[in-house]
Design a protein around this nucleic acid. Structure first.
Length: 1009
RNA sequence: GCCCUGGUGGUGAAAUUGGUAGACACGCAGGACUUAAAAUCCUGUUUGCAGCAAUGCAAGUAACGGUUCAAGUCCGUUCCGGGGCACCA
């Protein structure tokens, strides 16, 4: 009787379905455990081997907790709104809902193949109206709320209106625009529009204006990702910044709570770091600088000279131009007000509102040119740029403490969205400022004495200040407070806490997302009545964007006639609360019943990739806090513990095509006929690209040998050569060796392909190649994606080895949190293990071999060692070592020829979470009643594994020399005697003085001589 | 550029708290069974040197430096890979 995994897995999957084995009830009397995966976007490419990594881990943990007696919620659903479906719709005219439904069917089939314990009755799909009804409903709650800073809580906007009516906004400054101030009588005098505009500045979900990457040629808004070097990734069209009306979530009001909340959850330190860095809390001060605007005048005189240590002389010019004082000061944000006397220049962002006003006529052209340049650059490029760029405005600021004239520059390294969009530059203390000063020859003032070496900036806070007027001699970190109180005393600045995090952009100019339940009348946004939800997406004929960057909904008359909002919500809307819907997925009265939400409460284990570290995780944490503030749920952190799964990367393979490019009159001309595809093996490619070998030699070789493309040469007279790298389907490659027959069949274009093999021989299509030489592919580790042909489909592996093998192999691959390229190579080993385990129960010839004999102490020791290891490893998500422990166990039982039910049945239970199908089969084969899914978990008993002695490693000076078996009870004196009496040790210590004898009980011995 | 993360045999990896580096597998080599193959089983497998051999010695966890009786593990510097950086999900 052999291990027929196909039959076994089919049988039990069916049986579990029939018996509703994975049905989860909201049984409040039982202890609960909520195990959640980050749900997938159902892409057209289907599931690849990277997806199940986390799903298998959570499935194992869920099944383990179930065996331990918990009521386990382990649901699955689909994050079904998204750009790919929309793009597919644009290209193929298929409604996103249709392609999404197809994809989901496919995903579910693939997931079921692997044998997960989902209760599909609880499936959620964010794109279904019955789900997004509640996404819209929650949005309305956010729209109808404001953040009360007095008690740090979201509250109903009606309460705020009451406050405005009685006292104006004197006690609740406006988060959207702190210049807005009004009394109760002023409030009452405002028009309805004015009142709504003010309320909009308080709402948690609000409307404002923001810049997007606008591509005129594509008529659409692009992600930073899709913009490369200022042009669109698709098509290479120019991209510019464009201001559009946008919805936002006021997540900045939650910055502090999101930060504090991290202390209450079990996330990795790395994850917490990433989130706190994203929030980017810093404290410092805002300082006002008066601005002197230069007016046209050319006279100037040199009043001072500055010489640097290399002897270069810089002039400081007193420009005797007429200057006028700008009415508005230039406000900067700094975390280091203590360095105020070291300010040598100011830098403002290219988008800063004062740019136009302070640019002098002389500098106008230069500034305009610079701004044009900056506009073409993405934010990413601006941040990543090493090159220093900038332009002088022609104007000066005045240091508020000593009146020093400070030139004002514009540079892209200052971002408009952070702080005030302007900085005071202190080159001796800040590296970027230092580089900028050096690049533009701006003299540097040293305010930290010896701590500045003239070569590079020193960002210390511990140096003593010099050249700093009333701060001289003070330690920098002490001076911070002194300066801030002076600033506040003189009214030229104030203490300020800043966050890098910006409010979350919450609208997209797309079709395939949740419509906003908002109606616009006379420029006022009115919420739709809750009874009108869900506001369903209308049918459209075209998914192309509307005019001026509006979403496709703007093209629909029936939509615009009702004056409905034409933007849709972003991908993360539905995923910000889905974990609550799983608890109560069919509720039509509310998004989730409060009692049920209180029972399931926080997600106990959340498994997903680090790519969501800052986006999804922060948004869902914020939504949870809002719902908590509004009294809709009872907990304010969604996830108790987060486990990061590493990314399974694709291991791409490349073939190298040589393309002859016909040349006429020294210019390449278009290839009219196409040509025989020819590929060169890796080492030839490397030589060609490194110019060690003339590519033409290869080509001529091919011509000579095979008359390849002769007509072509005759026609064009001359041929040069192009080389290109092509992704080849990894499934056509064994290791790095290409299956050239399969490759020729892969695409019609390639069926007559010619190969230059690694050893220099040539493979032609008409001759079946039987030589020993190989075509070697190049390889690279990349993200797994269909377009890179590096995906591996789990279905194929499940089909070949079975779901249990596949599950265990994915776990055996390495630690769950580690990223690694996929490699199918080792799967045989895991499969062999399951076959070996099977043979402890059944023999191919003899049939049943298991028996009811009594277990020996040795066998019990193996069992209990395994129980301890598996339980421990499962608890700490060390699944790879758990699989190894199963192998060790099977090997040892095999060596002991242990076929005893007493032992085997316990092992089967241990194995259930990992390989449920074979476990269920063996459980029933052992003549047990009921399902192994609800068996009771083995209990470790220490008495079976106690050891009386240990093979102690003995080192001399830290180098291992021998091991000595010593009783575990032995104390230092006894051990010392035994060790020093040892032959090997004596040889090493002979004639040397023993300086120290280190003995760690149960661990090791080290003799220092 | 900034934030996070990783680097250990031919390969995936193990070493949980600073205490025997390479568990468990893959691959490879040799052998058994077989007419043969598959399957299965056994032996070996970090590198170098010495030895018929058991074995012994030396080196070794990206590189360099430090702390320690003891470092893959802690600290510093550098190099390389991966993820994220706000409209991919």
């Amino acid at each position: 009787m052999e291990y027929n995994f196909r039959e076994i897995e089919k049988k039990w999957q069916q049986r579990w379905k029939e018996t509703n084995a994975y049905k989860v009830s909201n049984d409040f009397s039982r202890p609960k455990c909520y195990v959640l995966d980050m749900f997938p976007y159902p892409s057209g490419a289907g599931l690849h081997v990277g997806h199940p990594l986390g799903y298998i881990a959570s499935d194992i943990y869920s099944r383990y907790k179930r065996l331990k007696g918990f009521n386990v919620l382990h649901p699955m659903g689909f994050d079904a709104f998204g750009l790919p479906a929309e793009q597919y719709a644009i290209e193929h005219g298929i409604h996103p809902a249709v392609s999404t439904a197809t994809n989901i069917d496919n995903f579910k089939k693939q997931l079921d193949n692997i044998g997960f314990c989902y209760d599909w009755d609880r499936e959620v799909n964010t794109s279904e109206p019955r789900y997004y009804k509640w996404t819209q409903w929650i949005f309305l709650q956010l729209f109808k709320s404001w953040y009360n800073r007095k008690n740090n809580k979201a509250e109903s906007i009606d309460g705020l209106i009451n406050i405005f009516e009685t006292e104006g906004n004197i006690n609740h400054s406006c988060p959207g625009d702190n210049t807005i101030q009004f009394s109760s009588s002023q409030w009452k005098a405002f028009s309805e529009k004015e009142q709504h505009d003010i309320l909009m500045h308080y709402r948690i979900a609000y409307c404002g204006y923001g810049e997007v990457n606008w591509c005129e040629a594509l008529g659409t808004v692009l992600a930073n990702d899709e913009v490369v070097n200022g042009v669109s990734e698709r098509g290479g069209h120019p991209v510019v910044k464009k201001k559009l009306r946008q919805w936002y979530l006021r997540i900045t009001e939650y910055a502090d709570r999101l930060l504090q909340g991290l202390e209450t959850v079990d996330f990795s330190e790395a994850m917490k770091d990433m989130q706190s860095n994203w929030i980017g809390k810093s404290s410092g001060a805002e300082i006002d600088f008066l601005v002197l605007i230069g007016e046209e005048n050319e006279e100037s005189e040199i009043i001072d000279q500055h010489t640097d240590e290399e002897g270069n002389v810089y002039d400081t010019e007193s420009i005797t131009i007429e200057e006028s004082l700008l009415d508005l000061p230039l406000r900067v944000y700094t975390t280091r007000p203590d360095t105020i006397f070291g300010v040598d220049f100011m830098v403002i962002a290219p988008e800063h509102e004062l740019v136009e006003q302070i640019t002098t006529a002389e500098q106008k052209q230069a500034v305009e040119d610079y701004i044009t340049y900056v506009k073409s650059r993405s934010e990413r490029e601006r941040m990543a740029e090493k090159k220093i760029s900038g332009v002088f405005t022609g104007s000066y600021a005045s240091n508020p403490f000593n009146g020093k004239r400070i030139p004002i520059w514009i540079s892209e390294y200052v971002l408009a969205g952070y702080g005030t969009g302007a900085i005071m530059a202190v080159p001796c203390g800040d590296e970027r400022d230092h580089k900028f000063a050096n690049h533009f020859n701006i003299p540097i003032t040293n305010i930290i004495g010896d701590a500045y070496n003239g070569e590079e900036a020193n960002p210390t806070k511990d140096a003593k200040l010099s050249n700093s007027d009333f701060l001289n001699g003070m330690v920098m970190k002490d001076a911070i407070e002194v300066v801030i109180s002076k600033l506040e005393e003189f009214g030229i600045g104030e203490r300020k806490t800043n966050y890098k995090m910006r409010d979350a952009a919450f609208s997209r100019q797309r079709y395939w997302g949740e419509p906003f339940p908002i109606v616009w009348k006379n420029g006022i946004a009115y919420p739709l009545d809750e009874s009108e939800l869900p506001l369903e997406l209308p049918k459209v004929d075209s998914y192309s964007p509307g005019p001026e960057g509006e979403g496709p909904l703007a093209n629909i008359d029936s939509w615009t006639d009702r004056q409905l909002e034409t933007n849709t919500m972003p991908g993360y809307a539905g995923s910000s609360w889905y974990f609550l819907r799983y608890m109560d997925p069919h509720n039509d009265e509310t998004f989730c019943n409060r009692k049920i939400a209180d029972y399931w409460n926080q997600v106990d284990i959340y498994i997903g990739g680090t790519e969501h570290a800052v986006g999804h995780l922060l948004y869902s944490r914020m939504w949870t806090k809002c719902l908590y503030d509004l009294g809709l749920i009872g907990h304010d952190e969604p996830y108790k513990k987060l486990v990061n799964q590493g990314m399974i990367q694709g291991s791409s393979r490349f073939v190298y095509r040589i393309i002859p490019v016909p040349v006429k009159d020294n210019k390449p001309v278009d290839d009219e006929n196409g040509s025989t595809p020819a590929f060169v093996s890796l080492s030839h490619y490397s030589k060609m690209t490194s110019f060690l070998l003339n590519p033409m030699v290869y080509l001529e070789e091919l011509y000579k040998k095979h008359g390849w493309n002769k007509q072509y040469i005759e026609k064009h007279g001359q041929v040069t050569l192009g080389l290109s790298e092509l992704h080849v389907d990894v499934n056509l490659v064994d290791g790095v060796t290409l299956d050239i027959e399969a490759f020729r069949k892969w695409k019609p274009d390639f069926n007559n392909a010619v190969f230059l093999m690694e050893d220099g021989s040539v493979s032609l299509p008409e001759i079946k190649y039987e030589g020993k030489s190989e075509y070697i592919c190049g390889s690279e580790v990349e993200k797994m994606s269909k377009s890179k042909f590096n995906t591996v489909n789990p279905d194929d592996l499940v089909n070949k080895y079975g779901a249990d093998t596949f599950r265990m192999y994915e776990m055996f691959l390495g630690p769950i949190d580690q990223s690694k390229p996929w490699d199918t190579k080792g799967i045989e080993g895991v499969h062999r293990f399951l076959k070996k385990l099977w043979r402890l129960f059944f023999d191919e010839l003899k049939g049943k071999v298991w028996n009811n004999e009594k277990a020996t102490p040795q066998e019990l020791k193996v069992l209990h060692k395994t129980i301890r290891k598996i339980e421990d490893d499962t608890e700490r998500f060390s699944f790879n070592t758990a699989v190894a422990a199963f192998m060790v166990c099977a090997n040892e039982l095999h060596d002991l020829k242990c076929y005893k039910k007493e032992i085997l049945e316990q092992v089967v239970i241990l194995l259930t979470p990992y390989a449920p199908h074979i476990a269920e089969e063996l459980w029933s084969a052992l003549e047990n009643n009921g399902s192994v899914l609800d068996a009771s978990y083995p209990v470790f008993e220490a008495k079976y594994v106690v050891e009386s002695s240990k093979e102690y490693p003995v080192s001399i000076n830290g180098k291992l020399r021998t091991t000595i078996n010593i009783s575990l009870d032995a104390e230092q004196a006894e051990v010392e005697k035994l060790v020093l009496a040892n032959e090997v040790i004596q040889k090493w210590v002979e004639g040397k003085e023993i300086r120290k004898f280190i003995f760690v009980k149960g661990k090791m011995v080290n003799v220092v001589v």
